[in-house]
């Protein structure tokens, strides 16, 4: 069974609606968080044997907020044992990514589930902090403290 087949099987078994992209390399889905819905992309690289799940924050970071958001995601990443936030320099898109190198591994749907659920929970927890930084309501340090206090 290919990585893509295993990934698709997880979403079928877990009853997540999704849309497979052509050529079986990725599928798009979404996650309903506490207050908002996040678009997500699950993708595989059959050659490198990697599986990646990424949720999109949704709002683009405008250039004047970039350094503040960068500081926020840097502080967040340093405290997280799994996954990371990324910020695309050109587009201003914030994503949270979880991934695994499964080369030589007999992969099952539990591993995919863990990547997906870890990811969704992290994005849901930290998204309010990103919003606070974007609006100028809090400094990155204050926003991280608010997120971590809420956990």
């Amino acid at each position: 069974m290919s990585l893509f087949d295993t990934m698709e099987r997880f979403f079928d078994e877990d009853a997540w609606p999704y849309q497979a992209l052509p050529k079986q390399w990725a599928l798009t889905t979404s996650y309903q968080g506490k207050s908002t819905s996040f678009a997500a992309l699950a993708r595989v690289d059959e050659d490198l044997q990697t599986v990646t799940f990424a949720t999109l924050y949704g709002r683009l970071v405008h250039p004047e907020a970039r350094v503040r958001v960068l500081e926020f995601i840097t502080r967040a990443n340093f405290g997280l044992p799994l996954g990371c936030f990324t910020l695309e320099s050109d587009s201003g898109e914030v994503q949270f990514r979880t991934s695994a190198d499964v080369d030589g591994v007999n992969i099952n749907t539990a591993l995919i589930r863990n990547l997906v659920y870890t990811n969704c929970l992290a994005m849901d927890a930290y998204a309010p902090g990103i919003a606070m930084v974007l609006s100028g309501e809090a400094t990155p340090e204050q926003a991280i403290a608010a997120v971590e206090d809420a956990q």
């Binding site: 960068l70 840097t74 990443n77 340093f78 990371c84 990324t86 910020l87 320099s89």
Partner: peptide, 14 residues
């Protein structure tokens, strides 16, 4: 940040 965008697995953090 820019390196992380190109990494499939793992991330740099400061």
């Amino acid at each position: 940040t820019r390196a992380n965008s190109g990494v499939a697995v793992g991330n740099f953090e400061l």
